[in-house]
Design a protein around this nucleic acid. Structure first.
Lengths: 174, 174
DNA sequence: TGCAATGTAAAACGATCGTTTTACATTTAT
DNA sequence: ATAAATGTAAAACGATCGTTTTACATTGCA
């Protein structure tokens, strides 16, 4: 595993567990097993490192959402939550932590959320046989809600959201 | 307005807009119009100040949720979002920023979320004439989802959530 | 009248921040 | 064989962090 990969993985873990601002450069170098000189050579600076973490996380998360039904979206979220834990959406969290004032971060978040919404719209269209923007928005709200409610409600929140989505989809299909 | 009230109001605004970690004590003293000596006399320290901000916010938010129907819960959230803006849930955000490692903050968040859930359960029970924990969990997910989706989707997310809740409630009533 | 309380302004505290630099070792490719 | 690239360890950078303290002014009550 090359230094960039190792750094990005370590950074994602620390930023996710302790927050972007609360994670210092020396914690990052210690976790990644490299000197600060090497960190800066590969990452540029802390904000760019966070942006790269988000881009990598987007890639991994969106890969799991390559499914053909709305119900499978919730199954994928259940898997994600089981594997990665429940600390809320890292994209929204890092944007909020920086007040939206760090361009690299704000752009990575915007790109992810646009892709996220697009994916939901197309999966809803597959399930229904036609587009339904309002239903897609409701599914998006349920996924976002499951992600954040799971922080304090656990996996129950995800399965409740999944059942709610099934009802809305069935209703729209008939 | 006494110093404690002025400080808490200024702190809530800054913590919400820029994040807890990113807001320094000197920004707080400048916004509240007081010396750091007075700030520490009233607040104890930064974490206790954040905890007091959260307790006050819980009071104001929960007061708006003193309603008699699930639909009114979403109407109340629409009002809240219009008045206070959309930067996500300050409770979850501050807990995530501190990794859950700051006891005062973690406790204030836990207390709020417990009260939030309880309120939803009782409003659902009023609407249905009986308790329905699963439906209440779905309403909680929709409210949490609307709060966080509104950050990047705007008010559409809240009205979509409101419509979804109406469908689920109607279905449970018949 | 005088003392306790409450406030400000500003300096100082040691610690830590993100970042750069200096000095040196090791690997890699021509 | 040699020069470029890539790494480490560690010191140093100025800035800022949360917090405490010193010195002094104002207020309100006994």
């Amino acid at each position: 595993m090359d230094m960039t990969t190792k750094l990005t993985a370590a950074a994602e873990r620390l930023f996710d567990r302790h927050g972007y601002m609360a994670t210092g450069i020396d914690q990052l170098t210690a976790a990644a097993g490299m000197s600060s000189r090497t960190l800066y050579k590969h990452a540029g600076n802390k904000a760019q490192l966070m942006a790269r973490v988000l881009t990598e996380r987007d890639r991994r998360f969106m890969a799991r959402l390559e499914v053909q039904s709305v119900d499978a979206l919730f199954a994928a979220l259940e898997d994600w939550v089981r594997v990665e834990g429940t600390r809320g959406c890292l994209f929204l969290r890092s944007r909020a932590e920086t007040g939206g004032d760090t361009p690299e971060i704000a752009e990575a978040v915007a790109a992810h959320k646009a892709a996220f919404q697009q994916r939901i719209e197309s999966v809803v269209a597959v399930d229904l046989g036609h587009e339904d923007p309002v239903l897609a928005e409701q599914v998006l709200v349920l996924l976002e809600g499951a992600t954040h409610a799971a922080v304090y409600r656990g996996a129950d929140a995800v399965s409740a959201a999944r059942m709610a989505a099934a009802i809305l989809i069935e209703r729209a299909q008939s």
